[in-house]
Design a protein around this nucleic acid. Structure first.
Lengths: 121, 121, 121, 121
DNA sequence: GTGGTCTAGACCACC
DNA sequence: GTGGTCTAGACCACT
């Protein structure tokens, strides 16, 4: 997992985004227990504290649920998951528009290009 | 300009991508002379050799043209510019599909979401 | 039972307050025998001497009564119990006024808020 | 400032509550700059990290606003302040009811006692 | 073993 | 000087 130290985004936020994506994409199953803070920290090659911070953020957003003595679980709240997907998608798409506008495309061209890519690419 | 030393992409490639984007977006005007290697290197905060390598790459792709005695110029070749835009857009759009598929969206949903964003966002 | 070693209040006083609350609230029944010093000390996780001191204090206030040969009993004196309730309540209410004034409420607002809470909360 | 290590509430939460109370009570003036993280940490006798955590929490609740290079400021948002006062008051009053019920008072008696205290005490 | 807290000290970007 | 991040390592409570 390549953490970008160069951009402004803190590692714990990058981790949070990654886990969000995993939850949204179903690679982390709702209701399932996730690995322990320490294990995740080792896997990610960061300090347990940093991982802790990312997970605390996710818990506070309702994406994870903590059972103090047994571990952390992915939320089963469908509404939360739906909102999560919407937020992630919105951010990604906004980024797309930003970059394509920067190379001189207008919004209609962007939509057309995305639609065309589906058929070709 | 945040160059990313962490991922595998060499800095000179990152610079080349940025300049391509500037050309495609018209921030570097076709036919215009660009700054000297040394100045560009200072602006970017990199070694002149690194900048040189990026520019050589762009020249080899036909995006820049060198006049031995006077400096480097942005190509005026419309075909080259068009291909450039296509390449950049394709990469960006491929990235979009990759990320949105990762959060569980299928291609039709992606196209729909991008179209919807144009109207809302 | 979380005894607070940090603030100035000695533990035996904290224990005394707790027992007073139990008597006032009827969790310790007037006329009933209470457990032995040793048992109470174990329950509270403190040294028997500390518990002894708390009980002596309560006895001196007339809340407990010692029968030399059989143990300690909760007073049945209604007047004592009434005074006890009054003292406890007064302390708690004084604390309330202190805290609510500290966040900028005046006495009328405090009374109103307490009355309102009864209906809502 | 006596931090309670005995109860379960983390120090950074206790600090956050205290600062909330200061804001609600006007001891920290809306719009005014507060002391630096390091100074506050020294005043409170805790690690700068711990203070940082408390302040981050308050910022996230909209009570403080951070200007990265100049310092932290108390919000001027009247709505936020009003909600804050309401939350604090509610918590304090709930605590009152809990304690007074524990000594055998019913809700009407509680309201009456609080009203009486205003006139006497 | 789990999550959570706290400390100490370093480093960065910004102005 | 400001806020913010990261690491390393210790300690606690709970089971």
């Amino acid at each position: 997992m390549p953490w970008d130290f160069a951009d402004g985004l803190p590692i714990w936020r990058q981790i949070a985004v990654r886990i969000k994506s995993d939850v949204a994409g179903g690679r982390l199953v709702p209701g399932e227990k996730i690995a322990s803070v320490r294990d995740l920290a080792v896997q990610a090659g960061v300090n347990p504290n940093t991982m802790q911070r990312a997970l605390a953020q996710l818990e506070q957003e309702g994406i994870l649920r903590t059972e103090r003595t047994s571990g952390r679980y992915v939320t089963e709240d469908a509404a939360v998951l739906e909102v999560l997907r919407g937020q992630l998608a919105s951010g990604i798409i906004a980024d797309l528009y930003c970059k394509l506008r920067a190379i001189g495309m207008d919004d209609d061209q962007i939509v057309a290009a995305v639609a065309a890519w589906k058929d070709e690419g």
